[in-house]
């Protein structure tokens, strides 16, 4: 190193445990407690600039950094998978700044940070699920102004949301919202569950685990306490229903799970496999075999991923 380079390196501050300074953690911790006390209410917080881009999980990372400790075991998933690049990157970040144990096993994790999925394995009372949230405001696409949506939440004025969903039915014959499907929490606040497929919505209802939501760019934290009623918005003549897949997972034969469509060739060949990679691996380890679970099928999926 040159003298100047040494000066610069020497002058730079060392990072605290879990990256965030203690005052920032306290600010986020207070927001989390208020969030739990007012289920699904979006608590404004002074989100910090993180060393990864806004929109890539900075809210979830700040929440995880504020709750995580030496005894925790962390799992990070993106699209249900532990090995997607952004999940790998966030997991590596926490290994580096908090020296925390990590796992891909859902049941071994005490803190699970997720983007776009809820694990298939039922969560337990000793787990915390941290969601990365891009747009926390469920009313944002109906009313772009924060000043207006805040009023609507205050007055419990959710008519606009029902009108929007009903217009979908009138136009398409279906509620045309398939992910980030709005829910009503503890009979008070309408909440955006983050862009999880609506397939996962029922898992939020009366979930034994604490669910925390962090939106870094939009500077909001919210929570669903364990064992809290979470109801997907619907209508008597158009009840909420989740996506059903016609075929089981091609690798582990699981039904009633969310599947990824994997394109095999350019002639319409495709297979459906579990989006939750840990769930799929556990099932295969237990001897479950899907119709393409031969060795060459494995090779195909590996390549496709």
């Amino acid at each position: 190193m040159t003298g100047q380079a040494q000066d610069i390196a020497g002058g730079m501050a060392a990072y605290n445990f879990a990256y965030l300074d203690e005052q920032t953690k306290r600010m986020i911790r207070r927001a989390i407690l208020k969030g739990i006390a007012i289920p699904a209410y979006q608590v404004p917080f002074a989100s910090r600039e993180m060393p990864m881009p806004y929109g890539w999980g900075t809210g979830g990372v700040q929440v995880t950094a504020s709750i995580i400790g030496r005894d925790d075991t962390l799992k990070v998933i993106d699209q249900g998978a532990d090995d997607t690049t952004n999940a790998v990157s966030i997991r590596a970040f926490f290994q580096k700044v908090a020296d925390v144990a990590v796992t891909t096993r859902t049941r071994e994790a005490s803190v699970i940070q997720t983007r776009h999925r809820i694990p298939e394995e039922p969560l337990t009372v000793s787990q915390v699920l941290v969601y990365q949230v891009p747009i926390p405001e469920p009313l944002r696409f109906l009313e772009p102004r924060e000043t207006e949506t805040r009023k609507m939440h205050a007055l419990e004025e959710y008519g606009l949301m029902h009108v929007k969903l009903y217009e979908d039915i009138a136009r398409h014959g279906h509620i045309a919202t398939t992910y980030a499907y709005p829910v009503l929490v503890d009979d008070r606040y309408v909440m955006d569950p983050s862009p999880t497929p609506k397939f996962d919505n029922p898992k939020m209802d009366m979930c034994p685990a604490l669910q925390l939501f962090g939106a870094g760019r939009e500077k909001r934290i919210y929570a669903i306490p364990p064992y809290t009623r979470v109801v997907s918005l619907d209508f008597e003549d158009h009840p909420f229903e989740v996506q059903r897949f016609e075929e089981p997972c091609a690798l582990c034969a699981a039904r009633d799970v969310y599947l990824d469509e994997v394109i095999l060739d350019d002639k319409g060949g495709r297979m459906f496999v579990c989006s939750d990679t840990d769930h799929c691996e556990e099932r295969r380890a237990a001897g479950n075999r899907g119709h393409l679970a031969a060795e060459e099928a494995y090779a195909t999926t590996e390549a496709a991923q």
């Binding site: 739990i36 709750i67 400790g69 030496r70």
Partner: peptide
């Protein structure tokens, strides 16, 4: 140990508030 004990205390309070 202010950093680690504050974390332990917060987790206790968070779990208590959640339950």
């Amino acid at each position: 140990d202010p950093v680690m004990e504050a974390q332990v205390a917060f987790r206790a309070l968070m779990d208590a508030t959640a339950r």
